[in-house]
Write a protein that binds this DNA or RNA. Structure first.
Lengths: 114, 114
DNA sequence: CAAAACCATAACCGAACGGTTATGGTTTGT
DNA sequence: ACAAACCATAACCGTTCGGTTATGGTTTTG
């Protein structure tokens, strides 16, 4: 049973993919062309990476004419945050307060998903 | 330049490896033998996975006679927490309070690393 | 309408990865 | 001293993965 965090970890394990995600996070919606210009790899590779991010639901895409605009889905990070908060229990009681905050965040943002 | 989070994401991307890490987190220090019993893969594979976790500095090992005891290094998760907190900025102002908490946690636990 | 721009897919390649069995080195038990 | 237990490494195998170039489909531009 592959957990929800699985596809996230896999998708973010590649540095190029993480860089794309980070760029989308910082600079907002971008076209494949714009992303390719800074990716350091070929356009087909960028498309592939975007496909992986899409399958992990980390990004959303929108067609407009001949270009495709990609955009981050920040709520998708929730399972990752959840995992970290759960398995960082070594940071014991101090973490209890953190989990409270996280639960509220998930309640607030995960709804837009279903 | 592979970031600090890189090896962490890679190490945790594999479900078997994550299960080992989670088991070590929940049940504390364990021998390779004990871990193999629940891993669902062969002992050599467990050793390999432990090697990967070790290279990511997620676990520490200690030889005692013919057995090797493995133990989690929770501080190693800090770069991951850092990454998440940084790129989840979309959870804007609500996240500011979270970051406060995280920074205090890192101050408390990351020191034992250097 | 023809050419160029934008993107996705296909075909292909080498490297890395997750898995196995086989082996060998220590350490423990009899 | 010998056998068994514990672990790591080696050798090997199929698959996945990150990368490329080539191609084709839309849409925009001249």
């Amino acid at each position: 049973m592959p957990s929800a965090a699985d596809s996230l970890f896999k998708a973010l394990a590649d540095p190029t993919r993480r860089a794309i995600f980070e760029r989308l996070t910082r600079n907002g919606e971008q076209t494949v062309h714009a992303l390719t210009a800074c990716a350091g790899v070929s356009q087909p590779m960028v498309s592939k990476h975007l496909g992986a991010l899409r399958r992990a639901r980390l990004v959303r895409h929108r067609h407009q004419g001949r270009e495709t605009h990609y955009q981050v889905r920040p709520e998708a990070l929730a399972p990752l945050v959840d995992w970290v908060s759960h398995y960082a229990d070594f940071w014991q009681n101090k973490f209890d307060r953190l989990e409270e905050v996280l639960e509220r965040l998930e309640d607030t943002h995960q709804r837009s998903d279903k």
